[in-house]
Design a protein around this nucleic acid. Structure first.
Lengths: 329, 329
DNA sequence: TTGAAAGCGCTAACAT
DNA sequence: ATGTTAGCGCTTTCAA
């Protein structure tokens, strides 16, 4: 692999001139430019990012932290991030943490070591303290899951209000016994969505029953099946279910079906996220749509601004209740 | 961010000694080692990968190229890659190309520039020629989709035989009119699976009808719906469908349902990949299971061996036909 | 055992 | 307009 020296020699110029051509510096004669360009082509030369980055202390690489690639929720967000990043000549690298702290550390260090210019974290399981430390000297944006102290800029939606609206929708349909399939409440979004659920029940004078609340370990289909199975075993069966993710909701639908019950007649079901599969399930799923692409695009814009030392403000985006067959069969 | 100089000064030693401590070089007195370690801790020092990589020409980073994160097929493969990489002190970065050649180029250059040590490509849309060029001087492994000339080591399954088995399964059920929903046949796997389909038909003396073969642009749910819609418009409706991906098959199921038909009674459906959703559809989907985790793990092992200049051989792994409700209701 | 110094590939300040 | 050169942070050879 040729380096800048060899190109300079071949073109009969100095390395500085080669560098200028590389960086489109205006002060280069067309004639020398051509000479250099020819040499570059002949030698198949590609500038080393390593040398360049070391010198410039910038890599134009952004890290995107996700707990798991298998969660379809992230797909559109990443799309938004990527498109925005490219528009600003940045590239993104996806980092799957699998909620493993060691892996987290590696990615944090990539930023410390200037191998990447900043991080967008969508990982609710992330070590908040370490991230805050990193954010003191480096560019960090939170997307979707955030920290209430506001120490790190974020883009998110109003989880509490969204959950409230979904549950209210179920209640208005005449369903009084609304169950909640929630995830681990050590996550902020889970606590917020629970608050929304409770607020809706309270508003309609419906008591909050522990037997109607089930917390899953993860957000997989199978957790939804399991949760629904447990809820159906309670003395009084629920007539509606609000699940905090579509994958859970689809699992719940499956179990309802397997028990010989019908959605929405026997049990209405609402999910959260509006993943593409929520339109493929049978029945199709009522859910809360988050503006995923926009969330991603916003997060990327914020991060790039932060890297360029501009002031950034946290943003709460609008969501939307999408009514489909699982509640309005 | 402190650098090695400051650590050296603080510890009252030379940078060389600090470097030796960092790299666990045996020839350092325990006493000096402690001095240096203290300085490192006090300054919160983290060695710069940039400097280190520039010097060592290695990054211990592996790139994984996928066309799109939204395809669940890749999930388990990536899991296998990641677990294996970590075991060998490598880290992986996911690179979504979106089939955009410019993005491809950026990732290729990351390898050329030593920002990454090698690439595992799972992208069927990749520029074969550029990849071959890259592979001449760098470590590259193909996973799933590969090149028949064998110029780049690969790990894959026998697509033709797998498709043959799936279609044979449909025929044995008594379905004579078997349609094929294939993707773009510029991809090797698509051509191979078509060959398997044709081989099964031929073996049972069933003529191959163009009207029963539909090629989609992409592998999304919606393409499956569209494909099925077209197939249902043919004069003679098919009684079975083999789709080359589960997402397509689930789309086909949806359309069958929407037309008031029943799977498998009216039309049996088989997919390919055994993605997690294939067990969540209604009816659950008969499909070909690829050993995804093993494929990923194998690809990672091969890549790491190649980086270490060991000899690597291409591997064809075993698949399995999983029979579920969509063919055996 | 430790230190001095060269050099990995590049950019930019300064000089011409 | 172009060249010379220092230096980004690190590792490693050579010398002490």
């Amino acid at each position: 692999m040729a380096n800048i020296q060899e190109v300079a020699k071949k073109a009969g110029v100095s390395v500085a001139t080669v560098s200028r051509v590389l960086n489109h510096h205006p002060s280069v004669t067309p004639k020398t430019r051509v000479k250099v360009e020819n040499a570059i082509r002949e030698l198949n030369y590609e500038p080393s990012m390593l040398g360049r980055n070391l010198r410039n202390s910038e890599s134009r690489l952004l890290l995107v932290l996700i707990p798991s690639i298998s969660n379809p929720f992230y797909t559109e967000i990443i799309n938004g991030i990527q498109t925005t990043a490219i528009k600003h000549r940045y590239n993104i690298l996806l980092c799957e943490t699998n909620s493993d702290p060691r892996r987290e550390n590696i990615f944090f260090n990539m930023v410390r070591n200037k191998l990447a210019d900043g991080i967008i974290s969508m990982d609710p399981t992330i070590n908040k303290q370490k991230l805050t430390e990193l954010a003191e000297h480096h560019s960090v944006i939170l997307c979707s899951e955030y920290m209430e102290d506001g120490s790190i800029p974020y883009v998110t939606i109003d989880n509490e209000r969204a959950a409230y609206q979904a549950v209210k929708h179920l209640i208005i349909l005449g369903k009084k016994k609304v169950a909640l399939i929630n995830s681990d409440e050590r996550f902020l979004y889970a606590r917020q969505r629970r608050r929304g659920y409770e607020k809706a029940l309270t508003e309609f004078g419906i008591p909050i029953t522990d037997a109607f609340i089930y917390n899953t370990n993860e957000l997989n289909f199978h957790d939804g099946v399991q949760a629904m199975r447990m809820l159906l075993r309670t003395g009084e069966k629920p007539t509606a279910v609000f699940a905090v993710s579509d994958t859970l909701a689809i699992g719940a639908l499956k179990e309802i079906n397997a028990s010989g019950l019908k959605a929405p007649e026997d049990i209405a079901v609402a999910g959260f996220d509006n993943i593409s599969f929520s339109n493929m399930s049978n029945p199709t799923l009522t859910t809360i749509a988050q503006p995923m692409y926009k969330m991603g695009a916003t997060a990327a814009t914020m991060l790039i601004n932060q890297i360029q030392s501009k002031q950034v403000e946290s943003i709460v985006l609008e969501h939307e209740l999408i009514i489909r067959e699982s509640t309005m069969g």
